[in-house]
Design a protein around this nucleic acid. Structure first.
Lengths: 235, 235
DNA sequence: CAGTATCCGATGCGATACTG
DNA sequence: CAGTATCGCATCGGATACTG
C-alpha cells in the first residue's frame, strides 16, 4: 500500500475511498437510525472496538459528515449527521436493498444475534395498533444461551409520548403477551422472509396472551426497513 | 481481525461486507461502464495489480455478481455482470452523486490522470453533433509530461456504426480540431465544474479548427455522468 | 459514561517476475 | 493477451487496560 487512494478523480472512486473503510458505512447507518450517543452506537455495533469507533467518528467529523455537539441537558457528547451525512441515506438504502435481494439469507443467518434483533425491534416497533395503556411483551428464544434468551419490551405512554423500553431482566409487570420462538425464525420474520402466521403454522412461533396483541403482531412488530424487498436468491 | 465479518444480519452490513473490500466497487463500476476484457478493466483501474484484479473477479463470480464467459469470436475470456451485478447500478450511482456533491474537488484534483480522462472521454463522447465523415481531434495538455501530453480522438463511421478511437500517437490524419489546455481545467470541464465557454474566457482552453466542432464542444464532449450534480462544497 | 493509550498480530495488498 | 506465482511489509484494526 504505497498510497491509500485509488488515484482517480472519478466521484465513485473518491466516495468509496472515504466510505470504504471498515465499519464506516455501519456507523453512518446507526446515525441514520437515530443513535446519537457513543454507547448507543456501540450497542448497534457490538463488535467494534471503542478506539476504532472513536477514530471513525473523528474522520467523519473531519469529512463534514458528522457533527459533534454537547448535549444541552447533560454534558455528554452527541453525534449527529450533517446535511452531507443525511444525503448518504440513498447510498445506505441502495446497499441494503441490494443485500436483501441478492445475498443469501443463509449468510445472514450465520450472524444471528438476539441483542441486535431486540434492539432493532425496539427501534422500529409500531405502537399504533397497541392499546393506550402499558403493554409488556416477553420474548423467549428457547435455543439461545441463558442470559440472552429472555427479553422484555415495555411500551408505555408517558405524557402522551410513546416510550419503548427494552429489558434483559424481568421488569416485574404483568405480561400481556408471551412470544416463544427460536432465534432464527424470529429473525426471519423480522427480515420479511417469513410472516408471523407462517411461523405459527409451522410451529416455529407460539403466542400466548391477549387476543388483540396476538392478532396484530405482524403490524406492531415493525419489520426491517428492507423487509418489503423481495429476495431474488434462495430464501 | 479475529473474523472478517461484522456479525450482523442487517442487509446493509452483509452488503458492505462484500462490497467494502478494496477495489471491488471500482471493478463493478468498470463493468457497468462496459469494460469486459481483463486488460480493459486494468486500463480503467491503472493502479490495481493484475493479481488483485483476478482475485476480485473471482470473488465476484463466486458471489454471483459477475459471469465469466469465453468470447465466441476469439478465445479470450469476457467478464460481464449478472442480473445481481446490474442491480448494483443504484449503489454505484448514489455513491457517485454523493461524491460529486460533497467531496471537495480539490481532492479530485489531486488525482489528475490524463490517461483516465481520455479513456473516459472516449467512452462518453457523443457523436451526434459531429459530421458524418471522419473527425480527428488532437488534445494537448501543456502541463503534462511528454509522452502523456498528446492524445488523439478519431471518430469514424464504419458500416454505419460510430467508432471512437483513442491514440497516444499521431494517427496521421488531418486534424479537424486542436484542443490545448492544462489537465486540471480539462478535468474540471469533464466533471461539470466549469463549462467549455468559461474555460475559454479564462484563457484555460484554446480551440483551433473548424467552427462547427469548436461551437459544439460542450455537446460532443459527453461529460461525466455525475456532471449534472451540483457541488455543495467549494468547487 | 465516554472515551484514550498501547501493543501486537494477521493479512491484505503491492511489487515484481514469470507462463501458457 | 490474460493471467499466476511468490514474497514481504505496512497497516489496519482487534484486544485489553486504563482514565477524567
Amino acid at each position: 500500500m504505497a498510497e491509500k487512494g485509488y488515484g482517480q478523480f472519478c466521484p465513485v472512486a473518491m466516495a468509496s475511498e472515504v466510505l470504504g473503510t471498515r465499519w464506516t458505512i455501519l456507523v453512518i447507518r446507526e446515525l441514520l437510525n437515530g443513535s446519537h450517543r457513543f454507547n448507543d452506537l456501540r450497542r448497534g455495533l457490538p463488535l467494534i472496538s471503542p478506539a476504532l469507533l472513536s477514530k471513525r467518528l473523528r474522520s467523519l467529523e473531519d469529512l463534514g459528515v458528522v457533527r459533534r455537539r454537547i448535549d444541552p441537558d447533560g454534558r455528554t457528547p452527541l453525534y449527529e449527521l450533517t446535511e452531507a451525512g443525511h444525503e448518504l441515506r440513498p447510498v445506505i438504502m441502495s446497499m441494503g436493498r441490494w443485500g436483501q435481494r441478492w445475498l443469501e439469507s443463509q449468510l445472514s443467518m450465520k450472524n444471528l444475534d438476539p441483542s441486535l434483533l431486540m434492539w432493532d425491534m425496539r427501534r422500529n416497533l409500531d405502537p399504533r395498533p397497541l392499546p393506550s395503556h402499558r403493554v409488556t411483551i416477553q420474548f423467549l428464544y428457547h435455543d439461545v444461551v441463558r442470559g440472552q434468551s429472555r427479553w422484555w419490551l415495555v411500551i408505555d405512554n408517558i405524557e402522551n409520548e410513546v416510550v419503548v423500553d427494552l429489558c434483559q431482566r424481568d421488569p416485574g409487570f404483568d405480561i400481556d403477551l408471551y412470544v416463544v420462538s427460536d432465534l432464527r425464525s424470529m429473525t426471519a420474520i423480522w427480515m420479511g422472509i417469513m410472516t408471523v402466521q407462517e411461523a405459527i403454522d409451522r410451529n416455529k412461533l407460539t403466542l400466548t396472551g391477549t387476543q388483540h396483541l396476538k392478532a396484530n403482531m405482524q403490524t406492531w412488530l415493525g419489520l426491517s426497513v428492507f423487509a418489503t424487498e423481495t429476495k431474488r436468491v434462495k430464501p
